[in-house]
Nucleic acid binder design. Structure first.
Length: 471
RNA sequence: GGCGCUGUGGCGGAGCGGCUACGCGGUGGAUUGCAAAUCCAUAGACCCCGGUUCGAGUCCGGGCGGCGCCUCCA
């Protein structure tokens, strides 16, 4: 029997995984604050955890997967002030764009997209519980969680409260009982969107929404909590503190994905390189999906390991694009078939294929090592010639366990022109060129090809005549 | 300063005590008018120093380097 192991940030070890209740994996992954167009970092988590959820499905589990939408936050308010656009309108627009990107990337295992603004009464109730139990207190500008009295605060990120005090970065606010205390409820200033509460009109602090929505949707004890590595501290640490203060077990296993880098360095929100719009543009979801296509981006992400950083240098993505193209070619027509439930993990196969299939599964069981799994896919691709359809279908079905090789992934190349006029013209041009070649007039033939290349069309001569496509 | 991660061939990126990772790129060949594509073949690596072991990129100790978090971030 297969056993999935997961690296748990909390214990810093790989642990065998078993759902806490019945056969359903309950997972929560921190989602975006919808105040701006997504960058690739916002989509990495969803893609990576979608792949993980798909693997749980392949292994016979049900998955309840929540990914929150933070639709009320300082950044949204600031954006609204800057642009004059109503905050509702901002969050609605960017939420829709986020969903569009997820669709393109075939992220479709997420079952719940809770919005912060829909959980206001639950959030207020949760904070009230904490206040009533003396875990939180009112300060000048809001309600704060009392960190000092929370035993083993810092267990996730491995830091001690005393250590943090020596750092110069924590600003001392005199109304707080302890400088590391964090905000649960922030009182509104004039004109800011707000909700009534026992402590005055305001909005939730950054951390509380996740804790409330996760426990409400998944229960007070659930299986997996994921997010970007940068959320480990303070966000996830504070989620744990609140939840434990409230008496919830919270997540058994914490998973953190690596972050985007460029030429070996993380790209932060405040990275000075981002001041150059041309630089910043490269990591926008819209740009990447247009420039490289969603399947390529997904494949690129899966070739690495989810816990390691991803370097989005164009040369790295280009290598992934070529590699994925080769797999698509090997699978051929099989890709376009409809999706159906697959039995690929238990299917009878010739011995060499079965061995690779099992190696693929073992890699995925081992902390979702998709990069190694894809390596086995390439080995399988070499066997397609020998085994034919049984191998190409197996390859396709395994890829689909990772969200690759979807029917819509193959539309581009050959059908790139559905313009009848253009097709007619191209047929004429290629036919004239073929005549030239037949007459050994290679100067003319090459000139046609070169000029077409300059115009953005490549021509390839094959045994059955020439074919063309957009570059 | 504190905590954590990491160091593999030109590049990306797996891996484990002894067996080719893999991909991109390169090289040679087949094919082609030439390209492209395709096919076949092939080279090239484990930061440094000790130790454990019959045997270590793979374990242990030390060193050096890179990165991340401790501030907004996914």
């Amino acid at each position: 029997m297969s056993q999935i192991s997961i690296h748990n940030t909390l214990t810093r070890t790989k642990e065998p995984f078993t759902p806490s209740q019945d056969n359903t994996v309950r997972m929560y992954v921190c989602g975006p604050t919808v105040y701006d167009d997504s960058h690739i970092g916002h989509l990495m988590g969803p893609v990576l955890f979608d792949t993980i959820a798909r693997w749980f499905h392949c292994r016979g589990y049900d998955v309840r997967f929540a990914n929150n939408i933070t639709d009320i936050d300082d950044k949204i308010i600031n954006r609204s002030i800057e642009t004059g656009e109503d905050w509702h309108s901002i969050t609605k627009r960017f939420t829709q764009k986020y969903f569009d990107y997820l669709n393109l990337l075939h992220v479709n295992t997420i079952t719940d997209f809770p919005r912060c603004s829909d959980y206001m009464s639950s959030i207020i109730g949760y904070i009230s519980d904490l206040v009533a139990d003396n875990k939180a207190y009112e300060a000048a500008d809001g309600v704060y969680y009392n960190v000092r009295d929370h035993k083993n605060y810092g267990k996730l990120s491995g830091r001690k409260i005393e250590d943090m005090l020596s750092g110069a970065r924590i600003e001392r606010d005199e109304s707080l009982q302890h400088p590391a205390d964090f905000c649960l409820w922030k009182l509104a200033k004039a004109g800011e969107p707000s909700w009534e509460s026992p402590w005055g009109a305001g909005r939730p602090g950054w951390h509380i929404e996740c804790t409330v929505m996760a426990t409400e949707l998944l229960g007070s004890h659930f299986d997996i909590h994921g997010g970007g590595d940068d959320l480990k501290f303070p966000h996830h640490e504070n989620e744990i503190a609140q939840a434990e203060g409230h008496g919830d077990c919270y997540a058994s296993c914490w998973m953190h994905n690596g972050l985007i880098q460029y030429e070996g360095v993380k790209i932060s929100k405040s990275d000075p390189r981002n001041k150059d719009p041309e630089f910043a543009k490269q990591f926008k979801a819209a740009y990447l999906l247009e420039e490289w296509s969603a399947p390529v981006i997904r494949f690129f992400l899966l070739q690495g390991h989810y816990r390691r950083p991803f370097d989005f240098a164009p040369k790295n993505i280009a290598a992934a694009q070529t590699a994925l193209g080769k797999l698509h070619k090997v699978i051929g027509d099989a890709i376009a078939d409809d999706l159906s439930q697959t039995d690929v993990l238990s299917r009878d196969l010739p011995e060499d294929l079965a061995k690779l299939r099992d190696a693929f599964a073992t890699a995925m069981d081992d902390d979702f090592n998709a990069g190694a799994a894809i390596g086995h896919l390439f080995a399988m691709a070499k066997l397609v010639k020998q085994h034919g359809e049984i191998a190409s279908v197996c390859l396709r079905d395994l890829g689909r366990c990772l969200g690759l090789f979807q029917p819509s992934d193959v539309v581009s190349a050959e059908t790139s022109a559905n313009d009848e006029t253009l097709n007619a013209v191209m047929n004429l041009v290629l036919s004239l060129r073929q005549d030239a070649r037949a007459n050994r007039d290679f100067a003319t033939a090459d000139r046609i090809r070169d000029d077409l290349t300059a115009a953005g069309i490549t021509v390839k001569d094959g045994p059955d005549g020439a074919v063309w496509e957009y570059i």
